[in-house]
Design a protein around this nucleic acid. Structure first.
Lengths: 253, 253
DNA sequence: GGTAATAACATGTCATAACAAGTTTGGAGA
DNA sequence: TCTCCAAACTTGTTATGACATGTTATTACC
């Protein structure tokens, strides 16, 4: 058992690693179509289930995305330039050992409030799609996210897995490159509904965040109310960060 | 298309959601055995491929782990108590839109250096397992992780997927609950090998981190050298954090 | 020429089947 | 009683096949 010990890896892992290497090496650039499942079956000489197992792993790692009927594509890295670098170190240092997930509470079409209408630039007669989710960190609920989408965006969300992050979904699968976001924060007491979802007492303090996200053309695509548990509130201070880094990029990238 | 619009969800998603709800509600506590695939097939009246699709999603979300021959188990939340809370807010605020992955460079059995021997408490004749990986953030390499494991731990790593985080693997699949870790940092120039893997010039500054991780019984299980790209170095300052939070826990949890 | 039906192709879902490989259990034999 | 081995049960891997559903390109009709 010396050296690289690839000994006898399963087929699907070999295929996954091959494709992963090609993507990371830039053989497939963002949005570029990858070989279809049939082609992969032929070129690797395996069955479809094996190909799909490899693709599923790549999807899980965010390296590819698929659209039914169209094909499989190398996915776009980097969303939200503003924060792109900041988790870098912390993530790499600490990421190993916690777990996040989200649980869909409800998704439905609603008549938006005046505020939502204004933020999303919606005409008074149009509807909007409301998505309510609870986000968990290490099995504990940390936030309730109430998101509103214009119909033409929200329409596509009913059939999607909303147990994961929505932004990559917008960027990759719905092909909506995201641009700037406006955020405002305040502390307020939790109402009964939020308190219940966050397993806290009604009236306990929560961080109330409003976030309006635009696409690259500056059209609003997502207006959210995020209610964070008060005891995660302090991390707010860490948002402040050092902007004096030598360069955003450097040679070789 | 009003209201919760579950319309006609695929079977595997229904199963996944059912199990997920049960886990989050505490029906299955950490390390508790879940129903076997056969039992799930019977109770849901579906084929094995469908059950496995649901389980795979749950695995991806970190809610369960499996061990061949033994079964499927609800996984342990919370590792590394020290940092458990800190990503909470940042994660929830910003997690949506970046992507991390790791690429295995090599895994092999080596004769450990004296330093590794001492740290891992290894007798002079014994071997150790060396794992070298490159970690990516948004498709850019950010660190080279060189990890050393005692043989009795490292032995099991050859057959695992090392493209993901290793700590959850140790905790859940290998059943090694982790305890404290010692970390030391310094800046130093990159050697040729690391520079190549990180796509930077040899001699460019990197953060050189040594981390020794113990299990709960204080036995060393993992000694690592982490080489971070210099331009992620500044985030180091964010490791300093507010310890005056009201309490680690509060009512209702 | 423009449009609408259709064929071809892509991924999504699900069933049945088989064997490999790791773990546990129980029974046979010393 | 203790040890060892085989049976039974677990998850892991892979093949074949089928139909559903979404997209694109072509073809035929008006």
């Amino acid at each position: 058992m010396k050296d690289n010990a690839m000994q006898h890896q399963p087929l699907y892992l070999q295929i996954k690693d091959t494709l992963k290497k090609q993507i990371l090496e830039g053989k497939y650039v963002p949005y570029q179509k990858m070989p279809s499942e049939s082609e992969l079956m032929a070129s690797f000489g395996v069955s479809r289930i094996t190909v799909r197992q490899a693709l599923r792993d790549l999807h899980r790692e965010g390296l590819i995305f698929t659209t039914q009927g169209k094909g499989t594509f190398a996915s776009k890295p980097k969303a939200m330039q503003e924060v792109q670098h900041l988790e870098g170190f912390e993530e790499a240092m600490n990421s190993q050992g916690y777990e996040t997930s989200a649980q869909l509470v409800s998704i439905r079409e609603v008549n938006p409030t005046k505020e939502v209408q204004e933020k999303l630039n919606i005409q008074s007669k149009e509807g909007a799609v409301e998505v309510i989710r609870v986000r968990y960190l290490n099995r504990e609920p940390v936030s309730v996210d109430t998101s509103f989408f214009p119909m033409e965006v929200g329409r596509h969300l009913f059939s999607r897995d909303l147990g994961r992050d929505i932004f990559p979904l917008l960027e990759n699968e719905l092909n909506i490159p995201l641009g700037r976001a406006e955020i405002s924060l305040e502390a307020r007491p939790a109402d009964a509904n939020i308190a219940k979802l966050l397993q806290m007492e009604p009236g306990a303090p929560i961080m109330w965040v409003q976030r309006l996200t635009h696409d690259v053309n500056d059209n609003p695509v997502d207006y959210e109310y995020l209610a964070f548990r008060g005891d995660s509130y302090k991390y707010h201070f860490h948002v402040e960060r050092d902007r004096t880094r030598t360069s955003g990029k450097q040679g070789g990238l």
